[in-house]
Design a protein around this nucleic acid. Sequence first.
DNA 1: TCTGGGGTCCTAGGACCC
DNA 2: TCTGGGGTCCTAGGACCC
Length: 431
Amino acid sequence: MPTSLPAATAARSGLFALLDCNNFYVSCERVFDPSLEGMPVVVLSNNDGCVIARSNEAKALGIGMGVPYFQVRDLLEFHRVRVFSSNYALYGDMSRRVMSLLMALEPEVEVYSIDEAFIRLPVAGRQQLVKIAADIRRAMWRQLGLPVSIGLGATKTLAKIANREAKRDPAGGGICCLLPGEDHRELLSKTLATEVWGIGARSARRLAAGGIRTALDLALADEDWVRRRLSITAARTRLELQGISCLAMEETPPAKQSIACSRSFGLPITEAAELKAAVFTFLARAAEKLRKQQLLAGCLQVYVGHRGAPGERRLRLTARTVELAPAGADTAALNRAAGAILKELFQPGQQYRKAGVVLAGLTPAAARQGHLFAPQPRAAEPLMGALDRINRRWGRDTIQYAAGLARSWLPRQARRSPAYTTDWHQLPVVR
DNA sequence: TCTGGGGTCCTAGGACCC
DNA sequence: TCTGGGGTCCTAGGACCC
């Protein structure tokens, strides 16, 4: 086993920075409601199911990430924590603003998630790099009102670790640089293996079985052992921790391989017509995304979630997949296929709690394949184009298929804030 | 009573072929 | 009684991410 880290090789390849918006959903709520500043705030997942974002004040109260809402409801009430249902119209729009501002400041940007982006930076002195990061932070705060943290490293994985440290240690001013040639062993030894990007609970258990508990342990572990006992992915992570970059920037997002839409229901559903209405609504959304990306779907999966055997806590999913020949993006044709699947899946008396659709086998619409036996589906194109334009102009579901109208399945959203930035009728009013 | 949603990638195992 | 081996493709399920 090697006892020291290999010399950093970043001079050739430059540096990675990771920008991460602090407590993003909470920060979005705070932008439009300053009374939330300094207060404990949490944001719930869809259906008000569990806690998915917490302000620092809420974290300090011991409210965990992902805990079911009902388990902490009393605690939240006791501490007068402000609770919000998730408002993806708002978060998605704020995310677009973050990313376009960042792209205006920096030439090489990879949007990694709704609240994170990697930035490629040239190798430079610490002072110069800190100034670049500080300028980005200041711009995000002044122009959008959002606090962000920035971590720098020779690899994406090290930039992730630097970012955690930037959040943890306020002395760094929201910035942490792990520069090539410097000794990061202390920070790596304080970072648990589970906290490393790409190492989940299961991998961490396997690593622990081999005596590997920290990021430093993993960086120094035997390559073959990691490769054999875990995976090629973990072996890459090991190299990344050593400062050897294996994960490149992806500035243009790769073409989607699947498009999905699913929801948990606010209340259990027992009627076939209600279940169908839910599935048709999800399909309308998925098909709209499909057409927006100018893709065709080659297969459709529909699944429904219901309670399993008595005593089984987890939701059980039942699914059917059909091939679509020819591939298409016509909502009416997808509805017909979904309707046929639902006839097979539906069981009277069953209580359904969730449903979803997945469009897969995606191909570019421009490369449409002819089909020997089925009629060409192009007739639907003008109709779908008009439908999308009207719904974009006048709001989602202005026009929809009648079988999708029933709304008994709608998720719970008891505490949602207004769509401040994406709906004229919900603009904040200044008095 | 009440536990999200949208993705990607890896692996193992079986089918199939020569 | 004797019963290959290696490669590819596909799929389901799991792990992981935010």
